[in-house]
C-alpha cells in the first residue's frame, strides 16, 4: 500500500513538472530562425513584385522567401533590389555596394504602398 502511494506521488510530481515545463515553453515561445528555415518561394525580385501586384500578397506574408536581384539603393543594413523589394538584413555590417547581384533569404513582411516596394526582413545572403 505504502509503495503504491509513493508511486502515485512520484507520478503526480512528474506530471506536474511536465505541465509546468510545457506551459513555460508555450508561453515563452521560440522565435523563428529564418536563415535555418526552408524557403517556401524562390523567385526574382521582379517576379515577386509582379505576383504581389497581380494577385495580392497574402500567400507571401510571413513566409520564408529566397529572392534575387541587383542592388539599386542602400541604407544602413537595408538594400533595395531592382527597385522592387526592400531587404533588411539581420547582419549590420555588410560589404555590399550598388550594382551587386545577390540572392537573399528572408521573411516577407508585406507591401509598402508609399514607395511601392515588397518588404523582406531577417534576411541573410544565400550566394
Amino acid at each position: 500500500m505504502n509503495r503504491r502511494k509513493w508511486t502515485f506521488a512520484v507520478l503526480v510530481a512528474f506530471f506536474t513538472l511536465a505541465m509546468v515545463w510545457l506551459g513555460y515553453a508555450f508561453l515563452s515561445g521560440e522565435h523563428r530562425s529564418i536563415s535555418e528555415e526552408e524557403a517556401v518561394f524562390d523567385l526574382s525580385a521582379e517576379q515577386l513584385f509582379m505576383d504581389w501586384n497581380r494577385e495580392g500578397g497574402k500567400r507571401f506574408v510571413d513566409q520564408t522567401i529566397i529572392a534575387s536581384g541587383t542592388i539599386t539603393e542602400m541604407e544602413k543594413n537595408s538594400v533595395i533590389l531592382d527597385n522592387k523589394i526592400q531587404v533588411n538584413f539581420i547582419d549590420m555590417a555588410l560589404e555590399l555596394s550598388n550594382g551587386d547581384s545577390l540572392a537573399i533569404k528572408g521573411r516577407c513582411v508585406g507591401y509598402d504602398d508609399l514607395l511601392e516596394l515588397v518588404k523582406i526582413d531577417q534576411a541573410s545572403i544565400v550566394n
Partner: peptide, 12 residues
Amino acid sequence: MLMNAFIFEKAL
C-alpha cells in the same frame, strides 16, 4: 509601417 515587422521579446 507594417505591423508585421514589430519585434517582441516573446514570440507569443
